[in-house]
Amino acid sequence: MPRGIRGRGIRGNERAAGWLFVAPAVMILGLFMLLPILMALFVSFTRWNGQGSPFTGSVPFAGVDNYTRLFTDDGLTRHDFMTSIRNNAYYVFMVVPIQTVLALGLALVVNKRRGFFRTAFYFPSVTSSVAISVVFLFLFANGGAINAILAVFGVRGPQWFSDPRGLVHLIVGDPPAFLVEHSVFGLTWWDWLSGPSVAMCAIITLVVWTTSGTFMVMFLAALQNVPVQLEEAGRIDGATRWQLLRHVILPQLRPTTFLVVTLGLIGTWQVFDQIYVMSQGNPAKTTLTPAFLSYRTAFRDFDYGAGAAISFVLFLIIVLLTLLQRRLTRERD
């Protein structure tokens, strides 16, 4: 960046001004992001139950117990935590591919068209997650709009938010005995494999519906940068529309696709608002996610140590994904 030659006085002035200008932001982020993270790290090694202050020395120290309870000790804590990991993994595997493909598809159909459709597809992503969850609760209610539409096609819709059966379970039927008899990390093989519940599928639908618009806009920006000459050259060579898409446009969109997929992977591990409003982890814990479980463990069960430990494991998962993304992005450039 070019910088002019400045006098000594201005420089001295700048040093003080620099700190003055960053001070408010630094103080707030330090006090309400950095400091709390350190405090929570400390609490994750204690058995604080919410009474008084956790920093007085009267709170029992737990060592790494809160972490071993999540991974190695057989018990309810591990069962719930592993269930939340299972649920969130299914959520990630469904949401990320569907929203990426849908966003790309929407971008391709609205590209070079005027504003109305763009606005329509993008609007859901700027609305409040809580407000939109209320609308989807109504749509997926037992006698609600979704089941009314399904009835038109002769399908009897499920009771969306009270049906804990997994998708795989619904398709395959009852599990073979050997899958139920053996378990890993406190859950039977069948628990791991039976798929996201019907209730989780309703939440997945909502999230795909709200986020596709955001990613569509990213794809649109990238499409604008595809050189017109490339497309024209392909067309002159007699390529069909499908061939143009497959061999000319998609390769040009690779960096954006990569970004959309990785942002999706990072974002989907953070699902919280929709779970809180729509299901609170029910039915039968099939919509419990690590983010919601850490909240529930701390603020409903008053086990702040375990709640904080769950937060840090989740933090680690997300940080690893973020580092991976930044690293791969840098290599690509």
Partner: peptide, 14 residues
Amino acid sequence: AVPPVVLLIPKFLV
């Protein structure tokens, strides 16, 4: 890169 959802308990503590 700090995800807001992991800050719930930390923010309450502070």
